[in-house]
Amino acid sequence: MQTDHKSVYIITEHTKAILASRSAYYRATVLEGKHEIHSIYTPEMILDHSCILYGSTLSGRRKAIREYYGITSKIPFMIDAKKAIYMLPTSSTRRKDCAWLSFYQIDFYEQRDNRCYVQFLDGTGIYIPSSANTVDMQHKRTSQIIARLNRPSMYNTYYAAQSAKSGGSIM
């Protein structure tokens, strides 16, 4: 498969993960289907570009999650709700080994020695330098966000009012 190094990768429903690259030239490796796509753009640049194409920005998505749900670190967020694309970080986004996983591509994850093995729906898998507990917490956070974003609007209005009254987060 040829890679177009001039254009920024666009996250789709087939994207499984975005990993920081250890290469001197490439800055990210994208796992899509059975392919690895190497990019000269950082994972955050890829995420931001995809958010923009789907109608927002990375900082806008983060701000919405931070303000509405009270999550301040390792913020999972939506890329595109219509295509059900949600990405979750496996560690602080400031760390070079942070992997971004696509929520609906994950089949299971488990601790293996000092790393977490993540298997995707197509049977492929990767090892990431995070614990299974951390991935589990991120997976649960993302599922809570998805459930709340997909609530009928009457429940969202009620929840927003309750959150404003309490002055706290709802997670």
Rank of each mutant, 00 (worst) to 15 (best):
D97Y: 03
A81K: 14
T93V: 08
Y69K: 10
F77I: 00
E13L: 03
A99W: 06
Q162E: 14
L47G: 04
T93F: 00
S39V: 00
R62I: 04
A164N: 14
T93R: 06
I85K: 06
V30Q: 05
L31A: 06
S163L: 12
E13A: 12
M87Q: 02
N133H: 13
L58F: 11
Y158F: 13
A164S: 13
E110F: 07
V118N: 12
G168S: 15
I170D: 15
M87A: 03
T93K: 08
R94G: 12
S7G: 02
I75C: 09
I37F: 10
E67L: 05
H5P: 00
E32Y: 02
K96Y: 03
C98M: 02
C98N: 07
K6R: 04
A132M: 08
M154Y: 15
E110G: 07
K140Q: 15
R22L: 06
L47I: 10
H49D: 14
G125N: 06
P129T: 00
I75A: 09
G70E: 08
R66Q: 13
K16Y: 03
R62H: 14
R27T: 00
M87T: 01
I18L: 05
S92K: 05
L58H: 07
R66F: 05
Q2L: 06
T3P: 01
Y54C: 11
N133G: 11
I10C: 09
N150K: 08
N114P: 01
R112A: 10
R66W: 07
V135D: 14
R61W: 02
L47T: 05
K82G: 13
D97N: 11
T29L: 04
V8Y: 05
A132C: 11
V8P: 05
R95Q: 06
G125K: 05
C51Y: 07
R22P: 00
N133K: 14
I170A: 14
Y127G: 02
S169R: 15
I79Y: 10
I65F: 11
S59Y: 08
A161S: 12
T72D: 14
Y9V: 00
F103S: 02
R66S: 13
S102I: 00
S163D: 13
R66I: 01
R115F: 04
A161H: 12
I65K: 07
V135G: 13
Q138P: 05
I145D: 09
E110I: 07
Y155R: 14
C116F: 08
Y69C: 09
T15S: 04
S143E: 15
Q162I: 05
S91C: 04
E44L: 15
C51D: 08
A28D: 02
Q162F: 07
N114T: 06
R148D: 14
R22W: 06
E110K: 15
I37Y: 11
